[in-house]
Write a protein that binds this DNA or RNA. Structure first.
Lengths: 200, 200
DNA sequence: GGAGCAATGTTAGTCACTAACATCGCTCCC
DNA sequence: GGGAGCGATGTTAGTGACTAACATTGCTCC
């Protein structure tokens, strides 16, 4: 059931999105959003801690961590995280309506918002890293695997936001993570890394 | 030669770092930094556009893009970017003094600063992506490769910032990028991705 | 019908950041 | 040597995000 506060919250989000699309994020003040929603600016901040968060409140799931941990533990960590994220998405793909698209577009075209949205991603990263280190995976290894996979996902998401080109989001995400997959056995000749000898 | 403005700028940076370490980033006001440096708060903003930028002004190099493009173009894009970044680092490893360490520590322990520093990384990403797409690499592919590699580097950097543990930074960066390398031919049995059929 | 609580409003403040204009100090040129 | 001119800085006044403290409203449950 939709309580009073949930209604207010939803109206604030809707009015904010509308104003952001009409005038741009920076040119819209919190007071204007609150006025449009018929509340005071204090009510806005009781529902959203910052102006950005009215666009960015993706409740990043802890079940992503479960999906990662559920992958076979003898896989390299990167591959484990990659398959976990793939599994989490196909288990519960987020609905992609016009409004979501508009939100992501706004974020993709605004460096400050892109940066802030990375804060959400970092929370997801933390959840994954905590789950993996709890299983004995070295912390740096877990962090790098999570950051690389989430970086790829973010790139695909923002790329889709700044230019849809008709391709569905799910396909782009799958293709992004596919790039991080180990190659099909023989395509690139196995070459060693350049000698890291002179790294300080 | 150090012009007057360069001296002022350096003093602002030094005073800011000192105050941030003593009281924390949020508890330090720009006016306090300016006072400590013996200038007005307006002078601060003439040298740094934001309070964060006094910590984050890493001039992210365009020669990274050159190093990436210089890698063999028949490699998969991810591997090309990975080797390019490795080459760029070993060609010009950034000096790691106490002050740099303190700066990165401050950033690593502050979610807002971590997010902002991602803005710098995005500029590097843009440079790499522009260079690669100029060579015919599909945009999404270039973005994903750059984001994954830079995500791994950021993770290693912040991990090092939040807990040095004596290991040199260069070793951590090399190990982070090493995780993204194609596996040595046979370790993980070549398994197909889970069927992506139901992706919307 | 009133007690109590949750949501909201009011007011006053701090701080990051900007714009407009004044001043100071150095250099260069006569 | 003495201004002219210019770059760096100061002053002042303002906007807007965000916070804290306290008042008010309106609904629910006894």
């Amino acid at each position: 059931m939709a309580s009073r506060t949930e209604i207010t919250r939803a109206r604030l989000q809707a009015c904010a999105l509308e104003l952001f699309l009409a005038r741009g994020f920076d040119a819209t003040t919190v007071t204007e959003i609150a006025d449009a929603a018929g509340v005071s600016h204090m009510t806005f901040f009781r529902h959203f801690p910052t102006k950005e968060s009215v666009l960015l409140d993706d409740p990043y799931d802890p079940l992503v961590a479960d999906a990662v941990v559920a992958q076979p533990s003898d896989l390299p960590t990167l591959e484990r995280v990659r398959r976990g994220l793939l599994a989490a998405w196909s288990a519960a793909p987020e609905p992609v309506d016009t409004e979501t698209r508009a939100r992501i577009s706004l974020i993709a075209d605004h460096p400050g918002l892109r940066a802030r949205s990375w804060e959400n991603t970092q929370r997801t990263e933390d959840v994954i890293v905590t789950a993996l280190t709890g299983e004995g995976v070295p912390r740096l290894e877990a962090r790098v695997a999570a950051a690389a996979c989430l970086g790829a996902i973010m790139a695909a998401l923002l790329d889709w936001g700044s230019d849809d080109a008709g391709e569905p989001l799910g396909a782009r995400l799958a293709s992004a993570l596919g790039q991080l997959a180990p190659p099909p056995v023989d395509v690139p000749p196995p070459v060693d890394d350049p000698p890291p000898g002179d790294l300080p």
